[in-house]
Nucleic acid binder design. Sequence first.
DNA 1: ACCCAGGGTGACG
DNA 2: CGTCACCATGGG
Length: 282
Amino acid sequence: MRTEIKDNSIIISGVKCFDMARSSNCGQAFRWKSVNDGWFGVAGDKGVLITQKGETLTITPGTDADIGFWLNYLDLYRDYQAIENEVAEDSVLSPCLGYASGIHIFNQEPFETLISFIISANNNIKRITGIVERLCELAGSRKEGEIPFYTFPKPEAIAALSEQQLTAIGSGYRAPYIKKTAEMIAAGYDLEPLRKMDTAAARKELLQFPGVGPKVADCILLFSLGHTDAFPLDVWMKRAMRLMYFGGEEPCKKDMEQKIAQLGPNSGILQQYIFHYARENM
DNA sequence: ACCCAGGGTGACG
DNA sequence: CGTCACCATGGG
């Protein structure tokens, strides 16, 4: 893999085992949208267009100082080929690769992920995307450029909104959860130390936030805090796990946990393959 | 009209 | 510890 700067763009060549289309459209992030010949997305205070042609990625705009940020965000440091090789040898999981090969876990900003997945509860991806977009327009800061965009709001900005404003953008009964959680972060709770905790301890911390239960906590751990063994179990995943490992029958909790543990330290990444496979097939 | 969506909360046993 | 009604919203 090689990086260079050309015409205000970051060019990353020799990119293997990465599919931007699948990665940006697999329900882990809500701020990427397909445009003419690529994807426009926002991360932190950066809004960029990413195009992929074969093994070459182009990120526009991008300077030398941004290279490390995007390599980390797109999880290009991780050896996904090794992970996919193991999946290919697993007779149960290998069918997922046809639909999920090239999916990377994006390393997103923790507060944004926390709020986004509170919104995700009992909701569908299209609606979640819309609510997040309206939240950014309501309380984020506008950035001008070739494609103008809004940043994800800071905790203080969301805490300052009324519940009525939050329901007005479509968040429904989750409005008080969003507000209270933002208030807790604005009051000084730091999510960063959760990266270094073991997954179970970090999960317990996240469960303190209103609107965060086991599934939402696992999404935050996996999509923003580097815990690749967090395994979000939503309705799609339960359906898929039932069919793949339990003959279509509902397993008891212990058997499910045992099966997940058996998938190893990258179970969360495998989860994303299974999730995408399930959404396309079930 | 009914069911579903990347579920969580609170009440009750 | 487990179960379950309820929660707001829009699309099928």
